[in-house]
């Protein structure tokens, strides 16, 4: 799809805004609708759009397979790490009240970190799943997806 000029220009214009919107949804999830799950999927959608238009190989130069796998693990570890931090600071597992001076502040810190962990995991896993599907060459069919 690299030769379709309209698609290329429009998607180049849109992708930064999609990624920006994903970050907005991520950090604004406390006050409006949104949160880690949605932000992760929107971020991944922006990346997938890039991969469809410019090819999976080009997209993989931005975020390599190793990077997404590491991010996948970091997200889960961040979530569990917040829980362990609660224990170390004298609370129960996933008890946010002890993370800051006041319980409300602690809750806020905990929720933001946890949502961020969820967001990273979801984005990384959707990107990983898409790239394993698209990066696999059809063996007996002439149609190719994402690579042309």
């Amino acid at each position: 799809m690299r030769q379709k000029i309209i698609l290329r220009v429009i998607s180049k214009f849109l992708i930064p805004y999609i990624l920006l919107f994903a970050l907005y949804v991520q950090w604004h999830g406390d006050f409006g609708p949104g949160g880690g799950f949605q932000a992760g999927v929107i971020f991944a959608a922006g990346f997938i759009l890039y991969a469809i238009i410019f090819g999976v190989a080009t997209a993989r130069e931005v975020l390599s397979a190793t990077t997404t796998r590491v991010l996948l693990v970091i997200g889960v570890l961040l979530y569990s790490g917040v829980g362990v931090a609660g224990i170390l600071l004298g609370g129960n597992y996933l008890d946010y009240n002890v993370l800051a001076d006041t319980p409300i502040g602690g809750q806020h810190v905990g929720i933001i970190l946890v949502e961020f962990g969820v967001g990273i995991t979801v984005a990384a896993s959707v990107i990983t799943i898409f790239c394993t599907f698209a990066g696999r060459r059809p063996e007996e069919h002439e149609e190719e997806y994402g690579e042309n």
Partner: peptide
């Protein structure tokens, strides 16, 4: 919890284990 969005506070705080 101190957040206006109850869905987020239930998701990330009250039902944290579920989300984990």
């Amino acid at each position: 919890v101190g957040l206006p969005n109850v869905v987020t506070s239930v998701l990330a705080s009250y039902r944290s284990y579920d989300t984990l």
